[in-house]
Amino acid sequence: MAPTLAHFDYQRVPVADGVSLHAAVAGTGSPVVLLHGFPQTHLMWRHVAADLATDHTVICPDLRGYGASDKPAEGDGTAYSKRTMAADIVTLARALGHDRFALAGHDRGALVAFRAALDHPSAVTHLACLDVLPTLDMWEVMQGTSAAVGFHLYLMAQPPGLPEQLISASADAFFGHFLDAWTSDPRAIPSDVRAAYLDACRAAVPSIVADYRASAGIDVKHDQADRDAGQQLGMPVAVLQQDWGSALGFDAAALWRAWAPDLRHISVTYGHFMAEEAPADIAKALRDLLAR
């Protein structure tokens, strides 16, 4: 049996026509929604969620296309735009009784959280983004040989067909590569959780590719439109990320500050899967954000 979040109740919540999200919910108090990254599921928050649930209502969904949530067809490309995925999360929170909530996301989940905060500023009280740049900025800094680290971004940006075929043929090797390469502490992802991640990804190749493909297309258009319009995040924002800037030649804090005037930017020494490697530190950072 796949692992679950201990002492959390699981619900299946309709959020759009034909799409329901699988979500774990626990605790009482002001609501916090935690969004997972790639190649993971809501399980990545298991330690942080347990900590926060002592005095907050914590909601941990699988994003559409991931885990046990529904995986609609890609269609015209809008099904996996971050705008659509963000609307899922706002609808989910409202269905659970929360018109306003704090939002934290890691990796892909951080991109969804970022878009939710831009599109639904009256709903998102606080925003935390872990180890990511906004989509538009990410593509702008990825250049030259340094872009090799993001080979998967370019692979999954290709038209439908080839990426899905290549990844499906070696799904465990492909997704396992990131679980191995992006952690500084392999013990942070125990064997049962790793197996659950691989099982979930193996069953979701088309939707995962569609999510990434959207980030090379429609998501860039949405970010550019907001940048051109001078849109910014009005809520308190915390960003925790590895110091990519010194390695790749950009100022990550400056890129984020252009979007978020009320920003606390923290460079960390953990690996990419920081909520699993250093959960106490991440929980504290989220609590510090919520106190602002």
Rank of each mutant, 00 (worst) to 15 (best):
residue 165 Q to T: 14
residue 210 A to H: 07
residue 206 P to A: 10
residue 163 P to M: 03
residue 35 L to C: 04
residue 267 S to I: 09
residue 231 Q to G: 00
residue 113 A to N: 04
residue 154 Y to N: 05
residue 132 V to P: 04
residue 207 S to W: 12
residue 126 H to V: 13
residue 192 D to S: 14
residue 285 A to I: 04
residue 71 K to Q: 11
residue 191 S to Y: 11
residue 143 Q to K: 15
residue 188 A to K: 09
residue 249 G to A: 07
residue 145 T to E: 15
residue 218 I to K: 04
residue 118 L to G: 06
residue 47 H to K: 14
residue 128 A to W: 04
residue 232 Q to C: 03
residue 127 L to E: 05
residue 50 A to F: 07
residue 127 L to S: 06
residue 84 T to V: 15
residue 100 R to M: 01
residue 135 T to V: 15
residue 21 L to V: 15
residue 270 Y to G: 05
residue 40 Q to I: 01
residue 82 K to N: 12
residue 181 A to R: 08
residue 208 I to S: 10
residue 116 A to Q: 01
residue 192 D to Q: 14
residue 61 P to M: 10
residue 142 M to K: 12
residue 241 Q to A: 13
residue 281 D to Q: 09
residue 227 R to M: 05
residue 147 A to P: 12
residue 147 A to T: 12
residue 287 R to M: 02
residue 270 Y to S: 15
residue 123 A to G: 05
residue 115 R to N: 01
residue 22 H to L: 03
residue 84 T to H: 13
residue 30 S to D: 14
residue 157 A to G: 13
residue 21 L to W: 10
residue 272 H to P: 10
residue 266 I to M: 06
residue 269 T to M: 01
residue 225 A to N: 05
residue 75 G to F: 06
residue 284 K to L: 10
residue 226 D to C: 04
residue 33 V to S: 05
residue 225 A to P: 01
residue 250 F to R: 12
residue 239 V to R: 02
residue 257 R to I: 08
residue 184 S to Q: 12
residue 115 R to S: 03
residue 16 A to N: 05
residue 76 D to Q: 10
residue 263 L to V: 09
residue 174 F to V: 03
residue 17 D to R: 11
residue 219 D to L: 10
residue 105 G to L: 01
residue 257 R to M: 07
residue 218 I to V: 15
residue 125 T to R: 11
residue 174 F to R: 04
residue 138 M to V: 02
residue 78 T to D: 12
residue 194 R to M: 09
residue 275 A to F: 01
residue 258 A to K: 14
residue 56 H to L: 03
residue 11 Q to R: 15
residue 169 A to G: 01
residue 281 D to P: 02
residue 60 C to T: 15
residue 67 G to F: 04
residue 135 T to D: 01
residue 184 S to K: 15
